[in-house]
Amino acid sequence: MNLFRLVADLSHLASIFILLHKIQTTRSCRGISIKTQLLYVLVFVTRYLDLFTGDFVSIYNSVMKLFFIGSSCYIIYLMRIKYKPTNDPSIDTFRLEYILGPTAVLALIFNYKFTFLEVLWAFSIYLEAVAILPQLFMLQRTGEAETITTHYLAALGIYRGLYIPNWIYRYFTEGGAIDPIAVVAGIVQTALYVDFFYVYFTKVLQGQKFELPA
Protein backbone atom coordinates (compact mmCIF):
# COMPACT_ATOMS: atom_id res chain seq x y z
CA MET A 1 0.00 0.00 0.00
CA ASN A 2 1.34 3.40 -0.97
CA LEU A 3 -0.07 6.89 -0.60
CA PHE A 4 -1.25 7.15 -4.23
CA ARG A 5 -3.14 3.91 -3.91
CA LEU A 6 -4.64 4.82 -0.53
CA VAL A 7 -5.85 8.25 -1.69
CA ALA A 8 -7.14 6.64 -4.89
CA ASP A 9 -9.20 4.14 -2.93
CA LEU A 10 -10.48 6.85 -0.58
CA SER A 11 -11.46 8.92 -3.61
CA HIS A 12 -13.32 5.90 -4.99
CA LEU A 13 -15.15 5.54 -1.68
CA ALA A 14 -15.88 9.27 -1.67
CA SER A 15 -17.35 9.07 -5.18
CA ILE A 16 -19.86 6.47 -4.02
CA PHE A 17 -20.85 8.52 -0.98
CA ILE A 18 -21.23 11.63 -3.16
CA LEU A 19 -23.50 9.71 -5.52
CA LEU A 20 -25.58 8.32 -2.64
CA HIS A 21 -25.79 11.80 -1.14
CA LYS A 22 -26.94 13.26 -4.47
CA ILE A 23 -29.67 10.64 -4.89
CA GLN A 24 -30.89 10.82 -1.28
CA THR A 25 -30.92 14.60 -0.83
CA THR A 26 -32.46 15.45 -4.21
CA ARG A 27 -34.61 12.28 -4.00
CA SER A 28 -33.75 11.84 -7.64
CA CYS A 29 -31.32 10.03 -9.87
CA ARG A 30 -31.70 12.58 -12.67
CA GLY A 31 -28.50 12.95 -14.63
CA ILE A 32 -27.10 9.57 -13.57
CA SER A 33 -26.75 6.83 -16.15
CA ILE A 34 -28.17 3.58 -14.81
CA LYS A 35 -26.29 1.78 -17.57
CA THR A 36 -22.96 2.92 -16.16
CA GLN A 37 -24.09 1.91 -12.67
CA LEU A 38 -25.16 -1.54 -13.90
CA LEU A 39 -21.77 -1.96 -15.55
CA TYR A 40 -20.08 -1.20 -12.23
CA VAL A 41 -22.08 -3.97 -10.54
CA LEU A 42 -20.87 -6.33 -13.25
CA VAL A 43 -17.28 -5.04 -12.87
CA PHE A 44 -17.22 -5.65 -9.12
CA VAL A 45 -18.99 -9.01 -9.20
CA THR A 46 -16.74 -10.43 -11.92
CA ARG A 47 -13.53 -9.08 -10.39
CA TYR A 48 -14.09 -9.93 -6.75
CA LEU A 49 -14.92 -13.60 -7.19
CA ASP A 50 -11.60 -14.19 -5.46
CA LEU A 51 -13.45 -13.34 -2.24
CA PHE A 52 -14.80 -16.88 -2.46
CA THR A 53 -11.74 -18.73 -3.66
CA GLY A 54 -9.60 -18.28 -0.58
CA ASP A 55 -7.09 -15.88 -2.15
CA PHE A 56 -7.19 -13.67 0.91
CA VAL A 57 -5.18 -10.44 0.62
CA SER A 58 -6.07 -8.40 3.72
CA ILE A 59 -9.05 -7.33 5.82
CA TYR A 60 -8.84 -3.90 4.16
CA ASN A 61 -8.98 -5.50 0.72
CA SER A 62 -11.91 -7.79 1.53
CA VAL A 63 -13.93 -5.09 3.29
CA MET A 64 -13.47 -2.72 0.35
CA LYS A 65 -14.51 -5.41 -2.12
CA LEU A 66 -17.66 -6.20 -0.15
CA PHE A 67 -18.41 -2.49 0.14
CA PHE A 68 -18.07 -1.90 -3.61
CA ILE A 69 -20.32 -4.86 -4.45
CA GLY A 70 -22.89 -3.90 -1.82
CA SER A 71 -23.00 -0.18 -2.56
CA SER A 72 -23.22 -0.66 -6.32
CA CYS A 73 -26.19 -3.02 -5.86
CA TYR A 74 -27.79 -0.55 -3.46
CA ILE A 75 -27.44 2.25 -6.05
CA ILE A 76 -29.24 0.05 -8.59
CA TYR A 77 -32.00 -0.52 -6.03
CA LEU A 78 -32.35 3.24 -5.53
CA MET A 79 -32.42 3.92 -9.25
CA ARG A 80 -34.59 1.01 -10.35
CA ILE A 81 -37.06 0.88 -7.46
CA LYS A 82 -37.03 3.66 -4.89
CA TYR A 83 -36.55 6.62 -7.23
CA LYS A 84 -37.60 4.90 -10.44
CA PRO A 85 -39.84 7.76 -11.68
CA THR A 86 -36.85 10.13 -11.70
CA ASN A 87 -34.89 7.83 -13.97
CA ASP A 88 -35.27 8.91 -17.61
CA PRO A 89 -34.23 6.09 -19.96
CA SER A 90 -34.83 8.26 -23.04
CA ILE A 91 -31.55 10.13 -22.50
CA ASP A 92 -29.55 7.07 -21.32
CA THR A 93 -29.19 5.65 -24.78
CA PHE A 94 -25.65 4.34 -25.10
CA ARG A 95 -25.84 0.80 -26.45
CA LEU A 96 -24.48 -1.62 -23.87
CA GLU A 97 -23.64 -4.23 -26.49
CA TYR A 98 -21.01 -1.87 -27.91
CA ILE A 99 -19.26 -2.18 -24.56
CA LEU A 100 -20.03 -5.74 -23.50
CA GLY A 101 -19.18 -7.36 -26.84
CA PRO A 102 -15.70 -5.95 -27.40
CA THR A 103 -14.66 -6.23 -23.74
CA ALA A 104 -15.76 -9.90 -23.63
CA VAL A 105 -13.77 -10.64 -26.81
CA LEU A 106 -10.73 -8.77 -25.44
CA ALA A 107 -10.91 -10.78 -22.21
CA LEU A 108 -11.03 -14.06 -24.12
CA ILE A 109 -7.93 -13.08 -26.13
CA PHE A 110 -5.86 -11.09 -23.62
CA ASN A 111 -5.83 -12.70 -20.20
CA TYR A 112 -3.12 -14.12 -17.94
CA LYS A 113 -4.50 -17.62 -18.02
CA PHE A 114 -7.36 -19.16 -19.93
CA THR A 115 -9.36 -20.08 -16.85
CA PHE A 116 -12.85 -19.01 -15.81
CA LEU A 117 -11.64 -16.71 -13.03
CA GLU A 118 -8.80 -15.13 -15.00
CA VAL A 119 -10.94 -14.43 -18.05
CA LEU A 120 -13.60 -12.84 -15.84
CA TRP A 121 -10.93 -10.81 -14.06
CA ALA A 122 -9.57 -9.49 -17.38
CA PHE A 123 -13.15 -8.81 -18.53
CA SER A 124 -13.79 -6.75 -15.38
CA ILE A 125 -10.65 -4.70 -16.01
CA TYR A 126 -11.59 -3.95 -19.64
CA LEU A 127 -15.19 -3.33 -18.66
CA GLU A 128 -14.28 -0.87 -15.92
CA ALA A 129 -12.13 1.06 -18.38
CA VAL A 130 -15.16 1.90 -20.51
CA ALA A 131 -18.01 1.63 -17.97
CA ILE A 132 -18.17 5.41 -17.64
CA LEU A 133 -18.99 5.87 -21.36
CA PRO A 134 -22.83 5.74 -21.01
CA GLN A 135 -22.55 8.39 -18.28
CA LEU A 136 -20.27 10.64 -20.34
CA PHE A 137 -22.48 10.08 -23.39
CA MET A 138 -25.51 11.17 -21.38
CA LEU A 139 -23.64 14.26 -20.20
CA GLN A 140 -22.72 15.06 -23.77
CA ARG A 141 -26.35 14.69 -24.86
CA THR A 142 -27.85 16.87 -22.15
CA GLY A 143 -24.95 19.32 -22.30
CA GLU A 144 -25.13 20.11 -18.59
CA ALA A 145 -24.97 18.49 -15.18
CA GLU A 146 -25.83 19.21 -11.59
CA THR A 147 -22.73 20.33 -9.67
CA ILE A 148 -22.94 17.37 -7.29
CA THR A 149 -22.94 14.97 -10.25
CA THR A 150 -19.75 16.58 -11.52
CA HIS A 151 -18.14 16.14 -8.08
CA TYR A 152 -19.06 12.45 -8.30
CA LEU A 153 -17.36 12.17 -11.70
CA ALA A 154 -14.35 14.16 -10.49
CA ALA A 155 -13.86 11.80 -7.53
CA LEU A 156 -14.04 8.81 -9.87
CA GLY A 157 -11.56 10.44 -12.23
CA ILE A 158 -9.13 11.21 -9.40
CA TYR A 159 -9.37 7.60 -8.26
CA ARG A 160 -8.42 6.38 -11.72
CA GLY A 161 -5.77 9.03 -12.26
CA LEU A 162 -3.97 8.18 -9.00
CA TYR A 163 -3.65 4.53 -9.94
CA ILE A 164 -1.07 5.60 -12.53
CA PRO A 165 1.52 7.08 -10.10
CA ASN A 166 0.69 4.09 -7.86
CA TRP A 167 1.87 1.73 -10.62
CA ILE A 168 4.98 3.80 -11.25
CA TYR A 169 5.76 3.72 -7.52
CA ARG A 170 5.17 -0.03 -7.38
CA TYR A 171 7.32 -0.59 -10.45
CA PHE A 172 10.31 0.90 -8.63
CA THR A 173 9.62 -0.56 -5.19
CA GLU A 174 8.58 -4.06 -6.24
CA GLY A 175 11.51 -4.94 -8.47
CA GLY A 176 10.12 -3.93 -11.84
CA ALA A 177 6.76 -5.64 -11.41
CA ILE A 178 4.06 -4.53 -13.77
CA ASP A 179 0.55 -5.72 -14.57
CA PRO A 180 0.16 -4.84 -18.27
CA ILE A 181 -3.57 -5.59 -18.50
CA ALA A 182 -4.45 -3.31 -15.58
CA VAL A 183 -2.00 -0.60 -16.68
CA VAL A 184 -3.06 -0.35 -20.32
CA ALA A 185 -6.78 -0.47 -19.44
CA GLY A 186 -6.19 2.02 -16.63
CA ILE A 187 -4.49 4.51 -18.90
CA VAL A 188 -7.38 4.26 -21.38
CA GLN A 189 -9.86 4.72 -18.55
CA THR A 190 -8.08 7.79 -17.22
CA ALA A 191 -7.86 9.30 -20.70
CA LEU A 192 -11.66 9.16 -20.99
CA TYR A 193 -11.90 11.71 -18.18
CA VAL A 194 -9.65 14.32 -19.78
CA ASP A 195 -12.44 16.26 -21.52
CA PHE A 196 -14.60 16.16 -18.43
CA PHE A 197 -11.81 17.48 -16.21
CA TYR A 198 -11.14 20.35 -18.59
CA VAL A 199 -14.72 21.61 -18.12
CA TYR A 200 -14.69 20.73 -14.41
CA PHE A 201 -11.60 22.86 -13.74
CA THR A 202 -12.49 25.76 -16.00
CA LYS A 203 -16.16 25.99 -14.97
CA VAL A 204 -17.30 24.06 -11.90
CA LEU A 205 -14.30 24.91 -9.73
CA GLN A 206 -14.69 28.57 -10.75
CA GLY A 207 -18.21 28.48 -9.35
CA GLN A 208 -20.02 28.16 -12.65
CA LYS A 209 -22.50 25.55 -13.77
CA PHE A 210 -21.23 22.55 -15.72
CA GLU A 211 -22.29 23.37 -19.25
CA LEU A 212 -20.82 22.11 -22.47
CA PRO A 213 -20.41 24.53 -25.37
CA ALA A 214 -23.30 24.11 -27.82
Binding site: R5, D9, H12, D50, D55, V57, S58, N61, M64, K65, F68, Y112, W121, Y163, R170, E174, G175, G176, A177, I178, D179, P180, A182
Partner: peptide, 10 residues
Amino acid sequence: LEMPAEKDEL
Protein backbone atom coordinates in the same frame (compact mmCIF):
# COMPACT_ATOMS: atom_id res chain seq x y z
CA LEU B 1 7.45 -8.72 -17.74
CA GLU B 2 7.32 -9.57 -14.09
CA MET B 3 3.87 -9.57 -12.51
CA PRO B 4 3.25 -8.01 -9.10
CA ALA B 5 3.36 -10.58 -6.31
CA GLU B 6 -0.36 -10.36 -5.66
CA LYS B 7 -3.40 -8.90 -7.31
CA ASP B 8 -4.38 -6.60 -4.48
CA GLU B 9 -5.78 -3.72 -6.50
CA LEU B 10 -9.46 -3.03 -6.18
